[in-house]
Design a protein around this nucleic acid. Sequence first.
DNA 1: GGCGTTGATGTTTACGTCAACATGATGGGG
DNA 2: CCCCATCATGTTGACGTAAACATCAACGCC
Lengths: 342, 342
Amino acid sequence: MTSSDAPVRRSKQPSMGDVARHAGVSAQTVSRVSNGHSNVDPLTRQRVVESMQALGYRPNSAARALRRGQFRAIGVIMFTLRTFGNMSTLNAIATEAAKADYSVTLLPVREATLGQVSGAYSRLSEAAVDGVVIIFEAHLLDEAEFTLPPGLPVVVIDSNAGDEYTVVDTDQGDGARQATEHLLSLGHRQVWHIAGPESSFSAMRRMEYWRRTLVDAGIEPPPVLYGDWSTDSGFRHGITLGQRDDVTAIFAANDQMALGLMRALHELGRDVPRDISVVGFDDLEEAHSFWPPLTTIRQDFGEVGRQAIQNLLAKVGGEQENSKIIVPTRLIVRDSTAAPRT
Amino acid sequence: MTSSDAPVRRSKQPSMGDVARHAGVSAQTVSRVSNGHSNVDPLTRQRVVESMQALGYRPNSAARALRRGQFRAIGVIMFTLRTFGNMSTLNAIATEAAKADYSVTLLPVREATLGQVSGAYSRLSEAAVDGVVIIFEAHLLDEAEFTLPPGLPVVVIDSNAGDEYTVVDTDQGDGARQATEHLLSLGHRQVWHIAGPESSFSAMRRMEYWRRTLVDAGIEPPPVLYGDWSTDSGFRHGITLGQRDDVTAIFAANDQMALGLMRALHELGRDVPRDISVVGFDDLEEAHSFWPPLTTIRQDFGEVGRQAIQNLLAKVGGEQENSKIIVPTRLIVRDSTAAPRT
DNA sequence: GGCGTTGATGTTTACGTCAACATGATGGGG
DNA sequence: CCCCATCATGTTGACGTAAACATCAACGCC
C-alpha cells in the first residue's frame, strides 16, 4: 500500500458542505432546506433531502447555537431528584419544554456547602442554556455565593425568593389551612403538627398557616414537632404523640411523615382514624393505598412545572416582568380522618 | 449626532477577544487561562482572571463545543420520570455525570406511538449530546422506527437489548429467586405471584425466575396474576387472593403492588404476615414504613446509574466493546413475612 | 560565548451554520 | 422589446474558541 492510500478516517459527521457536494448544490441551499425555508425549488429540495438521508446528515447543534446565539435549552438547578415533588415537577418541566421544542439540562448541586456551590456556579457559568429553573429554597440561593450570570432568565420554584425573580409555587398556606380546618370541622378540639425542617420555606409556610388557622378558631396551638420530611422522623414523633390520650388529630407536613406517623400509631395499637386522625400533604401516588388511605392535600406539581416553563420561555422571548404564580392546592378526604371519639 | 456615534449595542456576552483587549493580551492567552493550561505566567494569568471578572466573562459553550467537536453532555431518553426506579437512576446518572464534568440532557419520549417517537427522533437527531442512556424497554425501541444516529454511543438500562448495545440492569432473576426462596424457606408450600405487565422485560424476568424457583423446589406454579405496577392493580388481585384460604404467601413484582395488596388484605381482615406473607420488589424509600414494614428485594438504582455513565463515558472515550452489566439485588427482610400458620 | 532548550505569548486558521448580499434567470407590463 | 420585479441559488463573512504553528526572550551548558 502506498502513502496515497485513503487514510483511516475517523468517522465524522457529515456537514452541510458534504450534503451540498453530494446533491450538487451550495451549502446555503442545504441550510434553507434544513430550516424549511420556502424559496427552494421543490425538485432541488427533494434532491437535497435525499442526499441528507443518504449521508445520514444531522445538523450540528453547536454550530447552530453559536450562529443563532441561543441554545433552545433550559437548565434545571436542584439539589436532588429524590423527592416526589421535585421529580413530578421535573417531569412536567421536561414535558412542557419538549412541547416548545426546548430540551432540559440537569444542573445538580450536590450540597449547600460553599465550595460545592461555587463549583456548580462555574459549571453553570458556561452551561448551554437560555434560562434556568431553580428548584430549591431561595435562602440557600442567598446564603451561598451563588451568582447567576446576569441577564439569564430565571424562574424559582418552591421558595420565598423576592421580587428579583419570578416565583412559581403551590399554595402552601391555603393547603395547610384546609388541612387544619378539615380536622377542626370534624370536631377535633386541637390539631397537632409535625412540621418539616426549619430550613424549608414550604415547611415554615405550612406551619405558619396551621398555627394561624388554630388561632383564628380561638385555639392555643400546641408545641410544634419538627421532622425532616422522612418517614422515620414521622415515626419518632408518632411514638411520642401516640402515647398521649389528649392527642386526637395530627397534621403532618408531608405524606412521608404521615406514613411514618401512622406506622407508629399502629405499633402503639392506636386506631387511625378512630383514635387519632391524620392528614398529610402532597398526595403521593401511593397515598390512597396507605393503611388507612390517607387524607391529604394535593399539590399540582404538573401545573407548577408547566407554569414555570411558560413563564421562563416568555422571559427568554423578551418578556420583562417578574410575577408570582400560586397554584392552588386541594384537600383530598380519604379514610385517615374522622370525628373524634366522644 | 453623527453616524460615527456608538450605536445602541444590545448587551451581549463578552468574548475572549473582549477579555484579551481588556487585559492587554491575545485571545489565545485568555483561552489558555480559561482552560487552566500551565504555560502562562502567573502575573499574566492573574491579570486575565481579573479582566474576566471585571467583564463578567463566561465561555461560550456553543463555540467551545463546535471547536472541540464534543459537547460534554449526555442525553437520557425515557418515557416518564414518574417511577421510583427511573427517578433514582436518573439521579445517580446526573450525579455521576457531574463528577466527570458532563451535563445531562433530558430527552423525553411522550408515548410509544410511532408519530411521537419519530418526533423524538428528529429532536434527538440534532441533540447536543456525546452519548445517550436509554431508560426503557428495548422492544419499544425495536418496534418503533427509532433509529439512533449511527456512531452515537448508547447504553441501555432495564431492558433486553441484544448485543448491539451495552446493557446495564439489576439482577432481576436473582432477586425474584431470593424472594421466592425466602418464602419457601419460611415453610410456605406455595407462592403466588402478582406480575408486572407483559410488555415489561423486568416483569417477565421476575416472573420467569419465580416460576423456575418453584419448579426447582418441586412445586407446580399457580396461575400468574398480571398487574400494571400500580397500587390499584395490587389491590384488585389482593381482594381476589385474600379470599382464598389456601393462599399463604404472595410475591408482588414491585412495592407499589405489594402496598395495594396489603391494603386489600387489611380490608378483608387478613393479617399480614400471620395469615399471608407478602414480599415486594424495589425497596422504595417508604417500604420500611409500610404497615407492616415490607420485606422486599432492594435494587441498587444508584449503582445502575453509575455503571451506565461509566460505561457510556468509556464508549465516548473510544472504548468499543458492548458489555452486559448486572447489578446484584438483595433481600431485605422486614415484618411482612413469617412462617405460615400451622 | 555560541547554541540549543525551554517557556511565554502571539498569529493564523478552521470548526458548521446561516444572515446578508450578490448573481443570474424568468416573466410580465408598458 | 426593454426594463424591472421576482425567485432560485450561490458567495462571503462572522459567530467564539482552541489547535497548530510561529516568535522571541531567557537561561544553562560545554
